[in-house]
Design a binder for these strands. Sequence first.
DNA 1: ATCAAACGGAGTGATTCGCTCCGATAAGCT
DNA 2: AGCTTATCGGAGCGAATCACTCCGTTTGAT
Lengths: 223, 223
Amino acid sequence: MSKPARRAPRQAEAERNDRAVLQAAREVLATDGAHASVAAIAERAGVGIGTLYRRYRTKEELFQHLVAIVLGDYLAAAQEGLAHEDPWAGLVHYVTSAIGLASGSLAPIAGTIAVTPEMADRNERADDAVRALVDRAHDSGALRPDVTQVDLELLIEQLAKSPLLEQLKKQGRTDLLDAAMNARTRITAIAVDGLRAPAPHPLPGDPPGYELFSERWEPPPVG
Amino acid sequence: MSKPARRAPRQAEAERNDRAVLQAAREVLATDGAHASVAAIAERAGVGIGTLYRRYRTKEELFQHLVAIVLGDYLAAAQEGLAHEDPWAGLVHYVTSAIGLASGSLAPIAGTIAVTPEMADRNERADDAVRALVDRAHDSGALRPDVTQVDLELLIEQLAKSPLLEQLKKQGRTDLLDAAMNARTRITAIAVDGLRAPAPHPLPGDPPGYELFSERWEPPPVG
DNA sequence: ATCAAACGGAGTGATTCGCTCCGATAAGCT
DNA sequence: AGCTTATCGGAGCGAATCACTCCGTTTGAT
């Protein structure tokens, strides 16, 4: 009140660093999995550890923020799919986009961090959008009728995490990365073709329950 | 030389323990990935650490032995597939068996251990058997012609490692394990249906080169 | 020139790792 | 029964790694 508050001298740099940290976290999480260290994230972002810890009080807080962002990306991909005129093309857009997103970086930390309201909200909205996408594809007759939404989401998760890409990145074999990404695109195409109606035979077993998806984010039982 | 050598007093127990250690190593490797610790393997096998280290001089030696065994399992699965009269049924047998084997336990340690002659030999023989399986399926017209052997092997690797199963095991949610395995069976069926001829469209990009597979077992470049 | 905000990273205590070492245990011999 | 010896189990060691703190340095709006 007495003095006018000083403006932040290096605010622009701070914002740039924040974006760099979040992007680095995605990449390190994709290659190192659940054992991604804060030091590795800071180094990849090109900032000091202290810089990271001024923005996020703990590692968990950083991951919670990152998960909220990635969930927003999933939601956007689903909405883009709904914007397609052709139901099948829209579904394929979502599936391929979701597989590319963060290369399945979320799965390894599922259950290791607490769920924030923001995370829950975005997850619910993304779920709704995907459900609409699946219903529309079912109604149009393009998606084989015995594939459920949970089948689809689990298939995406299965294809998102590429052991091949992870190992090559960890070994620094950047010369093979392009070939590996091409290979994964082909595998994705194979799986997507398997989703197309008409199916040669019905899927085995009972449709998977939604709890396979929802309960994964609950913290471990006791310890 | 003077005295006749004594017979091993607890030889039967030693052999039982060896089998338990190898089975435990498969399971721990499947859940803990590359960070599987010797202590965890010994505990799961119900033996002391010292027992494990008398049989294998180092952790690497244990893993080398295990890899040789699992490669033998892959070879057996491929040979079983070749024994099928129907080329398509034989190929499906190999794919589904390979996916179930050790749940992709080998990928996380690829490149972290040296390749022994035994490993190289079994790998080569398994490769030959799979090549015959793929050729036969191609000739019969059941397998879509644009799918190569490398496509198939990479698809198997992709489906073998289940993030869902790994997380549930790590959290001790044994109540959901059956549902998760059923879900993976359905996903596998979807992908296998995508392998079936006729294909709705050709696969994108160029066929993947074999180096994606062979170079993974080379130790990291320098460091 | 001033000075507060933002920076980088050495240092800390806790934890985990692969592996060694040694006292306890039990099967085969006499 | 008593002796012998291969095998067993796990406490403990040094090294490595972790999340996080603390503080001297840099920067840029005033």
